[in-house]
Design a protein around this nucleic acid. Structure first.
Length: 754
DNA sequence: GTTAGAAACAATCCT
DNA sequence: TGTTTCTAAC
């Protein structure tokens, strides 16, 4: 692709961003200005200029962004593009550490601890150090440690800096002990992945040299979100060639709370005095009215680089605003409006997104979406991989993979119940500490531990079970290891015996984990257990979104960054909720400005239609809360807003055009179906065997038939009247005891035989 | 050692 | 309101 051709598909600023390959470049890319397009074309352009793909690196924050970039680069650049290093910060560091962690005293098959594991470890630390957790909450201590790590302060440095402050002594010792235990468990927490990589590069010139030579051209996406230690990582890698291109938007900096340092972008030109600065100000995403609203809101912020986004797009519809008496009605309106938009052919479900400030708001929305039988997907809240059943299975895998990981071993030694309680565990722990060995190593010698008595007999079968799998590990695929664990523990059977809705959802989640493992096994050239564990450890909920399926997405405003939707709802636009109470009550303007940037991010997600809603009352933590209309709503110019109740009498939304006409129930149900393949545990096991045998996966059968009694999450029990094959899915007719006859697609209804 | 039920407590947003 | 931790009884 020559620059003449590029000329046609890129505007002059974008073109400059693509072709300015040498030296530091800062691209200030406004929302919807085509930054991904610039980055991907830049990679292709570099390759065309003769740069080896092997020497190009692109770093993002989420796997989703990395995946998209990878796909687009592959399409654009073709052969050799797969050698370009496209990865998130965290997976980049994991890859480096898997290679060289032994140089900083870890084993290369280390575990990665998520927030949950870290908390468990911190509890042990507090207990060991006799820290009063009423006074110093584990979470608080972890927060202090995490912030320190973001600022590149390790435990020694932390001690030095705070030695004169006796209020900090507890934190100092907790940090020390926590790190010591991570080390002996051969584990890194999330922050460590980056901090330890930076330490490795700093203390080992050979390794630094190796990567500096490899990464001759570096690109960083969402640069406004980088924290101090991430900046240092990038700086180290780029310091020999200085071909560093960063792309970001200071107006979309919304991660101060996790250490993002906005000065990384604001002071880029000071860090790199010879930097080229390029501004992308033409927006290709939103209508004029939406963009006008976004600009009007963000201009109330002071600490920002001046820019003026503009667009050639249509004028568009006004931004709708509606206030309701309760959050209940608000949610109902959104669900009905989505339904109505779909019915009128305006938007598919997948073109709609509901954004909110706090995860707690999702529950009531979810309820209404289920009632309306609208397919939806909630992003965030409890991360899929943080669910109990998933973590249990993963803990087994970690135990098999890294026996030094005490947290994993202790998590599952008594799951399912083996009659090994806290007292026995304490004895094993003591023995392990006295003999300076890992917990698992101590378990192997359980019969030698005199204090244990007959409890050692209960430990033996567990250890034998793990050892048996370990021996066979080389011949197993990852899904097979999971199957061994499930078979050997009876985990699924136990859940099925329980029979509650919740237990059955857990079974489904395990099925999804198996699916993930199958996919991993198929798509990787050299699949390993460590590799799989690493992949799932770094997966964020947002990464699981699939654009091919037709569902409405519900998520926080934070999760929405980087995404775009035709039709966007911003729910809960109330002072006290958004902006949140702590930013209003505190007198820190910077915090309010960050909330405003968040609002800006929300508005600019919308392409065609934007609707803001508020509730006068909502239930928060068990008590009713009254909220005035958000100040951000009032910052919108009234001429582009439809339904601005704050300026006069409230308007009845029922009288406006999006009130939907009556429709039959059957039609409604039909619209809310989700075309995926039904699944069952038995079918999943069949898949595992199929994959292991190298054969094709077949379409699954349903675990119930006509005449069977089934259970639905919302509608309760009923009898199956009919099952029709609808191509990719089955359409099931059920007569429910409480709510009558309903037709639904099997994969969406998630019916369980009872 | 396990379990159920009571009491305490919770403060956004996330890799 | 929803979740986690504590307590008491099996």
């Amino acid at each position: 692709m020559s620059s003449i051709e590029l000329n046609k598909i890129l505007n002059p600023e974008q073109l400059l961003g693509v072709t300015t390959t040498e030296g530091p470049v800062l691209i200030l890319a406004g929302a919807g200005s085509g930054k991904t397009r610039v980055l991907t074309h830049r990679v292709a352009y570099l390759m065309e200029q003769g740069v080896a793909p092997y020497n190009i690196m692109a770093i993002t924050f989420t796997n989703k962004a990395a995946g998209e970039m990878r796909e687009r680069v592959n399409n654009l650049a073709g052969h050799g593009a797969e050698q370009v290093w496209v990865a998130t910060f965290h997976s980049t560091c994991v890859r480096i550490l898997r290679q060289f962690a032994d140089r900083i005293g870890y084993d290369t098959n280390f575990s990665i601890y998520d927030a949950d594991d870290s908390k468990t470890l911190m509890k042990e630390v507090c207990k060991h150090l006799n820290i009063d957790t009423k006074k110093y909450k584990e979470k608080r201590i972890l927060g202090v440690i995490s912030s320190a790590k973001d600022e590149m302060i390790n435990e020694e440095e932390f001690a030095v800096r705070n030695q004169s402050d006796f209020m900090m002594t507890t934190y100092i010792s907790a940090y020390r002990e926590y790190q010591a235990r991570l080390r002996s468990n051969n584990a890194f927490d999330f922050d460590d992945l980056i901090l330890k990589t930076v330490e490795l590069l700093k203390q080992d010139p050979e390794v630094l040299n190796y990567y500096q030579n490899r990464f001759k051209y570096i690109m960083v996406d969402e640069y406004q979100d980088t924290n101090t230690v991430q900046f240092e990582l990038v700086r180290l890698l780029a310091s020999s060639h200085e071909n560093l291109c960063v792309v970001g938007d200071d107006d979309q900096s919304i991660y101060k709370f996790r250490g993002a340092n906005i000065y990384n972008i604001l002071n880029f030109e000071q860090h790199f005095p010879n930097a080229t600065v390029i501004k992308l100000e033409q927006n290709y995403r939103s209508t004029k009215k939406i963009l006008f609203g976004a600009n009007a809101v963000i201009k109330n912020n002071e600490g920002r680089k001046e820019k003026a986004l503009w667009t050639e797009n249509d004028e568009g519809e006004k931004i709708r605003f509606r206030q309701f008496d309760s959050a209940y009605e608000e949610a109902e309106f959104i669900a009905m409006d989505v339904r109505s938009q779909k019915r009128r052919g305006n938007f598919d479900f997948k073109e709609c997104a509901v954004l909110y400030r706090t995860n707690a708001q999702s529950r009531i929305l979810e309820e209404k979406f289920i009632n309306e039988n609208i397919p939806y997907r909630i992003v965030g809240g409890v991360n899929f991989y943080a669910r109990k059943e998933i973590k249990d299975i993963l803990a087994y895998l970690k135990t098999i993979d890294n026996g030094d990981d005490d947290i994993a071993v202790q998590r599952i030694i008594n799951v399912p119940k083996r009659g090994i309680g806290a007292t026995s565990l304490g004895k094993v722990s003591t023995y392990a500490r006295e003999n300076e060995m890992s917990f698992y190593a101590a378990l192997l010698e359980a019969s030698e531990i005199s204090t244990l008595g007959k409890a050692s007999g209960k430990i033996a079968p567990f250890v034998e079970f793990i050892e048996k799998i370990k021996i066979k590990l080389p011949e197993y695929t990852v899904p097979e290891v999971i199957r061994e664990v499930l078979d050997g523990t009876g985990y699924i059977e136990e859940l099925q015996a329980e029979g509650t809705d919740e237990a059955l959802v857990r079974v489904e989640n395990i099925e999804e984990l198996i699916n993930k493992a199958i996919l991993y096994q198929e798509e990787n050239e050299s699949p390993t257990l460590s590799g799989f564990l690493e992949e799932v450890a770094l997966i964020a909920d947002i990464d699981r979104l699939d654009e091919n399926e037709d569902y409405v997405v519900l998520m926080t405003l934070h999760s929405a960054k980087g995404l775009e939707f035709e039709n966007v709802y911003m729910a809960g636009m109330e002072d006290g909720l958004f902006p949140s109470i702590m930013t209003i009550s505190g007198d820190d303007d910077a915090e309010l400005e960050e909330e405003r940037r968040l609002c800006y991010v929300g508005i600019t997600r919308a392409k065609k239609l934007l609707t803001m809603t508020a509730a006068k009352t909502r239930m928060v933590r068990g008590e009713w809360q009254y909220g005035a209309i958000s100040r951000f709503v009032k910052e919108l110019p009234s001429e582009i807003v439809d339904g601005n109740t704050w300026e006069g009498k409230s308007r009845d939304f029922a009288a406006t055009s999006f009130n939907e006409p009556k429709k039959s129930f059957a039609e409604k149900k039909k619209e809310a179906t989700k075309p995926t393949v039904a699944s069952s545990y038995a079918a999943k096991l069949k898949e595992i065997k199929a994959v292991s045998a190298g054969t094709k996966i077949e379409k699954n059968a349903l675990p119930y038939g006509v005449g069977d009694r089934v259970q639905h999450q919302k509608f309760g029990e009923g009898t199956v009247k009919n099952i029709a094959d609808g191509g990719r899915d089955f359409e099931v007719t059920v007569e429910f005891d409480r709510v009558g006859v309903k037709k639904m697609f099997a994969s969406f209804a998630k019916l369980q035989k009872c």
